[in-house]
Amino acid sequence: MKSIIFASRNTKEITRDIMTSLFGIGFPIVLLVLLSAINNSIPKDYGPKLFNIELLAPGITVFGLSFLSLFSSMLISKDRTTSFMLRLFTSPLKPSDFILGYTMPLIPLAIIQSTVCYICALFLGLQFSANLIAAIVVNIPVAIVFIALGLLFGSVLNEKAVGGICGALLTNLSAWFSNIWFDTSMVGGAFKAIADLLPFSHAVNAARAAVAGDFGAIFPDLWWVIGYAVVLTAAAIAVFTIRIKKN
């Protein structure tokens, strides 16, 4: 219950920073439109198949969610430097209330982001079907993975450092190992093995399976994502607890 009350405060903090929300929703759309335009200008059968809209759209929705890491890490690292947080540390809020309270307001943002991205993809040639709803649902645990990663980094790093880690490094890593821009099996070897161990390619595979209506193919990959979501959220709570005690 206390986490919901804390979440309502964070919702206000996020929604009152309109530019951040607009960037989070707008940037994936820009990418989707640009890449579709590039793909359309390449003669058929010559361009990469991954840029076909039914593969590109779910990939971009997952890539868009990586920005949630930046949002969540900035939110928590900024709070950590304030006396307001000091006040909350002396309150009955528990570390789990903090982490869940930071996570909850970003889930609706993730749903809006994915929905807007798929609506945009419809105009770019994606076939409308109920599968898109499943794809949006699949993106929820993916969003939790990225939010938890941000909270984990934001619990230990300062505001300046998380900008670099979550804004640049994590976004790039999640892109390279995701199967969005190129098929990791084409690189093979250690690269493919790392990609298979990380959640990003599994997230994209699950989203693509959902869009294709291949529901049987969603879960082997989504289990990886759900596992990462649970472990990373628990890790964020543990690290935040240590930070409070180290205060």
Binding site: R9, K12, E13, R16, D17, T82, S83, F84, L86, R87
Partner: peptide, 8 residues
């Protein structure tokens, strides 16, 4: 230091 939520 003043401990208030700035945007609330």
């Amino acid at each position: 230091e003043t401990a208030v939520a700035a945007k609330l």
